[in-house]
């Protein structure tokens, strides 16, 4: 599965993207965030406050209970600040 990180999530994790093997037990966005938080200190810092993390599955906004599969492109990022 391809993961993308933007803005301060990328800074904290130290990666703009990574490819992971999705464990069978991880089937939703929320479970993925919890699982990723255990990967490194940077991941833990990035996912420390779930309220400040947004997610997109295949370029559409997704909530914590959204289902995910191994072929999805998942992005995590802070609330947007364009315009």
């Amino acid at each position: 599965m391809k993961l993308l990180y933007f803005a301060w999530l990328r800074d904290r994790i130290g990666l703009a993207e990574e490819t992971i093997e999705l464990p069978e037990s991880v089937t939703t966005v929320g479970q993925l965030a919890t699982w990723l938080a255990q990967k490194s200190d940077g991941h833990a810092e990035a996912f420390a406050d779930p309220n400040s993390v947004r997610c997109a599955v295949n370029m559409d906004y997704a909530r914590a209970d959204a289902a995910i599969g191994p072929d999805d492109e998942i992005a995590f990022f802070p609330p947007v600040t364009g315009g």
């Binding site: 933007f6 803005a7 992005a75 802070p78 609330p79 947007v80 600040t81 315009g83």
Partner: peptide
């Protein structure tokens, strides 16, 4: 368009002040 753009378009602003970058928080 502007109101929705500000909350839905995936852009993030990094402000440079005194040589340091700081991510802008959502309002």
């Amino acid at each position: 368009l502007m109101d929705w753009l500000k909350t839905k378009a995936p852009f993030w602003k990094l402000e440079e002040v005194d040589g340091e970058g700081k991510w802008v928080a959502a309002r």
